[in-house]
Nucleic acid binder design. Structure first.
Lengths: 362, 362
DNA sequence: CTGTTAGCGCGTTCAT
DNA sequence: ATGAACGCGCTAACAG
């Protein structure tokens, strides 16, 4: 009852397994026109499906590309996954998924599992961390990756490289200019307003978050503004919401004093920004009237959110694609892919004032 | 340089490969306390990682569970994927991903690919279709699935069964009561208003869409209301947007006449509803003032959308989990999982009238 | 151009 | 309790 094998096909076609193999997959020429047809028919009638495990064993390569994300339901990762999937299709490979919640030790496990399956390459998305508590985990992860690379595996990491990972062969990093873009966002934001800036960031040690915070502060500084307060919270919508609640209180408290200075809140990613905005709204505050809010990533699903969220567009899908194909080795153009760039997008959530007031002042 | 093998470990430990195998995996007893330890150390020092391909070949099972979705970046599928992933983790398996854009022939390919990899089970999400143009594809898909099942594979389909698929062993369907829930939504909506209803549906033949349309109409009928107009469009945000544009025109045109009857728009999924809402807004219309809008699915990422979208909550993650574990065979409780249920959630997007007007009329 | 012989790395009978 | 031998399904060297 088990699926029919190549040998059976060969027997039915009256040829040797080797010949059948040559016909059903493409190695050298197989102009045995007549033979080829017989084999094909035999395969067809038997409903033959090659056993990829066996093929993999024989060729020691699996046609698999492993993808590691924090959470596939997070639109950020989902977008990247789509890019990886695209690249996989081009390479005629399949993608193997692992979600890790960002824990280095379960990332290590995932890498080991991928290695066990002899994945041709591994893509790691999700920000790296440098927290003390993750130090051990990071080291082990780096070791695991190193071993994987040494055994011929290819790795594509998105954002920062793994802490402590040697620049081994087959180890690629798709850099995302988080810091520069955040600085640019701050600059553009600062150019048209005179407000107090606040940053809602992720836990300290999260590279992506830290980079964006640093960049934003730098942008502020170069605009001659003081550094913004930083609220540390979870790198999620819930975290953003929590911070938003605190900020709402702060706004309410300061209103009687000097109502002139509106708050401009920069959340280090869109999901957090949405959370913060929701919190403000739940407290009766309105955006951008009572506070401005900006995010980062330009998540597609969030584009219909109102007021439209100012953010930094990142080509997530392209990032995923690059990570997956850089790991596949320099293909046609060995010049490598173009560096990732983003783009500041100012929308309604950070509008400076209602047209009416602008007009009246002017 | 290739990864070290079990044989090498065995040699280093001074035992036979068989013994090493018994130690490193759990088959029978391995009380060779001293031996076991030696083997483990050898494995450790060599950085031994079992070759899953070889294991799979030997045991003819792969620890893989295949997942087929239209688009992993669609939050609907992403949520299901998370559930599948959870189930996979519990089963100590990994998830293989395939995206097909809903095309039956590429779904067939995906099934074949999964079969080739000897996936232990396959989960198919994404609505089935009965369009004439897909007939051939569906038949082939059904045949492929049938063969897969006959070879011992397990299949879990979400929503409707594959058209033409025999109720083979190992073929499970996680039913989603789309029709009932849509009817319920219509009933609740109809109870508190006197409006013209319009349905924004997907292309004809899409089961999920058709079920929801049918159910909604039924609900309307049982409330003594006439059937709603149905606008057919793409099952995506873009489709919803397009329909929304048309509806905006319709609203604008009818306003001079009888301004009493507001439109209540039911889009067969949340993403389309959001698209429609965006279109209305782009034409200067406001929700729920100028029109009510409802969706279906209760996508998590969309919950912060304003006005809050009335919809039908579906336990997407649980659905994915069930599909993945039903396919794993009746586990602990052979009573099977509880049937999927949803819940109508009325939010602001379908509010009947502003408190003020309600008051003044009363 | 085709058939034969060896493994790929591991699990699993059999003996011992 | 341990080791030897065989086979999982396929590909890659060699023969012919």
């Amino acid at each position: 009852m088990a699926a029919s094998t190549l040998t059976e096909v060969a027997r039915l076609a009256g040829v040797s397994p080797a010949t059948a193999s040559r016909v059903l997959n493409g190695s050298a020429r197989i102009p045995g026109k007549d033979i080829a047809e017989r084999v094909r028919q035999a395969a067809e009638s038997l409903g033959y499906i090659p056993n990829a495990q066996a093929q993999g064993l024989a060729k020691s390569s699996s046609g698999l590309i492993g993808l590691i994300v924090h959470d596939i339901a997070d639109p950020y990762f989902a977008a990247i996954a789509r890019g990886v999937q695209d690249a996989a299709r081009e390479q005629h490979k399949m993608v193997l998924l692992a979600t890790t919640e960002g824990a280095p030790d379960s990332e290590k496990e995932a890498v080991a599992a991928f290695a066990a399956r002899r994945a041709d390459s591994i893509v790691i998305a999700g920000s790296r961390t440098s927290r003390a508590e993750d130090l051990g985990g990071n080291t082990e992860l780096a070791a695991e990756l190193d071993r994987y690379c040494r055994n011929g595996g290819h790795v594509g990491v998105i954002g920062h490289g793994i802490v402590g990972a040697a620049a081994a062969d087959g180890y690629h990093v798709v850099r995302v200019p988080n810091e520069e873009l955040a600085a640019q966002l701050a600059t553009e934001l600062a150019a048209s307003r005179e407000e107090d800036f606040v940053i809602v960031g992720g836990p300290e040690g999260l590279f992506t978050s830290d980079d964006r915070i640093r960049g934003f502060q730098r942008g502020l500084a170069s605009a001659g503004l003081p550094a913004a307060d930083v609220i540390r919270t979870h790198f999620t919508r819930a975290g953003g919401f929590e911070a938003g609640l605190a900020l709402a209180a702060r706004i309410a408290a300061s209103q009687p004093g000097t109502e002139a200075k509106r708050l401009c809140i920069f959340a280090v990613n869109d999901v957090m920004a949405i959370g913060a905005a929701a919190a403000l709204r739940s407290q009766g505050l309105r955006i951008p009237r009572d506070a401005a809010v900006a995010g980062f990533d330009d998540i597609e699903t969030l584009r219909d959110f109102r007021p439209a969220l100012s953010t930094v567009h990142l080509p997530l899908e392209e990032i995923g694609r690059q990570a997956a194909s850089s790991a596949a080795g320099p293909s046609a153009d060995d010049a490598g892919s173009p560096p990732i760039t983003g783009q500041v997008i100012l929308r309604r959530s950070t509008e400076v004032a209602h047209p009416s007031s602008t007009e009246s002042v002017a």
